[in-house]
Structure formats: structure tokens, C-alpha cells
């Protein structure tokens, strides 16, 4: 593994830990898109079905996969749990979470039918998850562009998520040049799309929150 890949994985892991820490320590969940977090849980469950075959790439790979499934599922459970403990915040969160995710699910399913490595259940599920991950941030982006309520989404979470996507690009360039010109085209193009969406996410965050903050301060 090259340094970009390791740092990319670690920043992804960090972003999830930051989000969990935020949800647990602050009462503000309004800025979080429940739909985006649910889509991420679906992404990891459908991508890592290969865990069940026990043809594991490495211990590192298997442990990271288990971490991503468990931690994203935990985020969904935490958000869902706030329905009882913090009803007002929960309703606020859902009220602004109005992006239609059916389109993302259908689009990703179609992309996986057109672009896959093999026409098998595991490979179709893998491709579906890669395409879904590339667009799963859209409900969050949409929510942010409409309301700009981002108290619990800290700069650190977005920075870590953006860093993870950005680092995967030099990782692919590194791998392409060192590993016999091999490149996973599906992961590469879906990854590029995702990185573009993240740069938009950061731009909106910057204009709405960082610059907007100056106006709101008493």
C-alpha cells in the first residue's frame, strides 16, 4: 500500500469518528442528512458482502470493512434514537432532508448493470455501491444549500471526508504507474465524480457557513 492510500483510508475513518463524536456530544443533529447517512450504511453493506465469502484480501482490509459497516450503521441508529430523546431536533433534521433518493438508488442500480466486472450478484452489488457512494452526499449537499444549518457538521468532518476523496486520486496514479498500468475504471470514474461533488460541498460550506458566520455573530 502506498502512503496516499493509507492516509486516505485513515482520513475516511477519522471523518466517521468525528461525526459519531459530534452526534454524541452535541444536541444539534439538524445539519446532518439522515438520508445521506442511511445511503452510506447501504453503500458499505452492499460493497462488503465479500466478507461473507471469507476470501479476505488481508486482515487490515477485513477489519476496515467491518469498521465501516458497523460505524455507519451505528450513526443511523444514533440519529434514529434521537427521535425519542431529542424529538424537536429529530423532526428538524427530517424536515429539511427533502432530497429524493429514489433517483440515486435507481441511477446507481442502472450504472451497475451497465458497468460491472462480472455479471454476478457480488460484482453487481459492488458496482452498485461504488456508484451509490459517489452520489450519496447529494442529500447532504442539497440540505446544506437550502438551509445552511451545519452546526454539528464541523469543518473537521468535511475536511477529513474531502481529504479522503482527494487522496484516493494520487493513490490511483501511484498504483497505475507502479502496478503494471492497472486501473479499476469503475472505481476511478465513480471516484472522480465523488471528488467533484465533494469540492462543491466544500465550496457551499465555505460560502454559507464560514463566510456567513460573520453576519450571524451577535
Amino acid at each position: 500500500m502506498n502512503p496516499f492510500r493509507i492516509l486516505g483510508d485513515l482520513s475516511h475513518l477519522t471523518s466517521i469518528l468525528i461525526l459519531i463524536h459530534n452526534i454524541k456530544t452535541t444536541r444539534y443533529i439538524e445539519g446532518i442528512s439522515f438520508k445521506t447517512q442511511t445511503l452510506y450504511a447501504l453503500v458499505f453493506i452492499t460493497r462488503y458482502l465479500d466478507l461473507l465469502t471469507f476470501h479476505w484480501v488481508s486482515l487490515y482490509n477485513a477489519l476496515m470493512k467491518i469498521f465501516f459497516i458497523v460505524s455507519t450503521a451505528y450513526i443511523v441508529v444514533l440519529l434514529q434514537g434521537s427521535k425519542r430523546t431529542n424529538t424537536i431536533a429529530y423532526n428538524e433534521m427530517l424536515m429539511h432532508d427533502t432530497f429524493k433518493i429514489q433517483h440515486l438508488l435507481i441511477g446507481s442500480a442502472l450504472m451497475s448493470v451497465f458497468f460491472h466486472h462480472k455479471f454476478t450478484f457480488l460484482e453487481l452489488a459492488w458496482s452498485f455501491s461504488v456508484w451509490l457512494e459517489s452520489v450519496a452526499i447529494l442529500p447532504q449537499l442539497y440540505m446544506l444549500s437550502k438551509g445552511g444549518k451545519t452546526r454539528s457538521l464541523t469543518v473537521h468532518y468535511i475536511f477529513a471526508m474531502g481529504l479522503y476523496r482527494a487522496l484516493y486520486i494520487p493513490n490511483w496514479i501511484w498504483r497505475y504507474s507502479t502496478e503494471d498500468k492497472k486501473l479499476d475504471k469503475i472505481a476511478f470514474f465513480a471516484g472522480l465524480l465523488q471528488t467533484l461533488l465533494y469540492s462543491d460541498f466544500f465550496y457551499i460550506y465555505y460560502t454559507k457557513v464560514i463566510r456567513g458566520k460573520g453576519f450571524k455573530l451577535p
Binding site: 492510500r5 483510508d9 475516511h12 460493497r47 465479500d50 476470501h55 484480501v57 488481508s58 482490509n61 476496515m64 470493512k65 465501516f68 466486472h117 462480472k118 460484482e123 459492488w126 484516493y168 479499476d184 472505481a187
Partner: peptide, 10 residues
């Protein structure tokens, strides 16, 4: 038989 595809990235 074809080899299984190894998705080594996360």
C-alpha cells in the same frame, strides 16, 4: 475457471 476479482480498496 476465472479467478475471483479482488477488490483490495475500501
Amino acid at each position: 475457471s476465472e479467478e475471483d476479482i479482488l477488490h483490495d480498496e475500501l
